[in-house]
């Protein structure tokens, strides 16, 4: 990181660790204090946060996607191996471990989701293991892989974040996907009318008799606003909860890592802190993966839940 002779300041160090490897469509112009010049608008790897800001939505975090897909493939490969090896005889070793996870997920799903669906349990399994693996990257010392990547890339300022779940794009992407699935299954289970009724007739039931008819549109609009907010809040809370926990954890790891350069005494102290925080963080990453999964199951259960018809008819 100090290839240009100047050791980075703590602020720079932290900033660097929180910046993604970004590839995007950069409008023409001069960026990074005049260090890089983009002659024509085109797709390129960002060199500094200013360029990333200029790219706006037309950018993709290569590191987040790489680690997210890579870890997802590790998950799928491991469980696919298990699926191929699975037999009705006596299981052993890794197969035992995989089956224990499957059984745990199956039990959790059965507790929270009482309907028949071939989709929800695999969804829960994918979320739990994948999110756990992505969170697990948080326990890898913060400089190891980024330094290695910088060395391979030959660029000391190479941006490389290895924890996908500290990227809100990743967590919100999953959150919105879950809610899209919830809406999809809601419509499939209840029909479009049923779904719209759910949004407009709850929580206050409009009356269509006598004077009630005058207030019915008002109540429906009010319900719609309320339910829409609730619906939008779900994926955001889902995504931001995971992001917030992991981002905060990562931040503390970075702060501790920044202390290592402040002399022997601080270094030893930081080592102890690092160990303590890592031990505590094992709980956090597991818990967050579990919470994401359980909330998904709950939301899916709500999608399948059908209110008694008479509630609409009285």
């Amino acid at each position: 990181m100090a290839a240009d002779g100047n050791a980075p300041t703590t602020t720079e160090y932290i900033q660097h660790h929180l910046t993604n490897w970004t590839y995007g469509k950069l409008p023409a112009g001069t960026y990074c204090d005049g260090k890089t010049v983009q002659e024509t608008t085109g797709w390129t790897v960002a060199h500094c946060p200013e360029e990333m800001a200029a790219m706006g939505f037309n950018a993709i975090h290569l590191d987040s996607m790489l680690w997210s897909i890579g870890l997802g493939i590790i998950f799928l490969a491991l469980f696919r191996w298990g699926a191929k090896k699975a037999h009705a005889g006596v299981p052993s070793g890794m197969l035992n471990f995989i089956e224990a996870i499957i059984e745990f997920i199956d039990k959790t799903v059965k507790d929270g989701f009482q309907y028949r669906s071939r989709f929800v349990a695999p969804l829960a399994l994918t979320i739990f293991v994948w999110v756990f693996l992505m969170n697990l990257m948080d326990l890898v010392p913060v400089d190891w892989i980024p330094q290695l990547a910088a060395w391979i890339a030959g660029d000391p300022h190479f941006y490389f974040k290895i924890v996908p779940t500290t990227d809100p794009n990743i967590t919100l992407g999953m959150g919105f996907t879950v809610i899209a699935l919830v809406i999809l299954f809601s419509i499939r289970q209840k029909g479009l009318i049923g779904f719209i009724k759910e949004l407009t007739f709850h929580p206050f039931h409009p009356s269509f008799k006598g004077v009630g008819l005058l207030f019915a549109p008002l109540i429906i609009v009010f319900n719609l606003i309320l339910e829409t907010i609730a619906l939008v809040a779900k994926p955001i809370s889902l995504g931001l909860r995971l992001f917030g926990n992991l981002y905060a954890g990562e931040m503390i790891f970075i702060l501790i890592a920044a202390m290592f350069s402040a002399g022997l005494l601080f270094g030893v102290f930081a080592g102890a802190l690092q160990l303590g925080w890592a031990l505590f963080h094992i709980i956090v990453i597991t818990l967050q993966a579990f919470v994401f999964m359980v909330l998904t199951i709950v939301y899916m259960s709500m999608a399948f839940h059908e209110d008694d018809e008479d509630q609409f008819n009285h």
Binding site: N58, L76, T126
Partner: peptide, 17 residues
């Protein structure tokens, strides 16, 4: 920075599931 990553992750997620 919200960007295309969010869509990339959504697609990946669905495919994996």
């Amino acid at each position: 920075n919200l960007n295309l990553t969010i869509i990339g992750q959504s697609i990946t997620f669905i495919v994996f599931v």
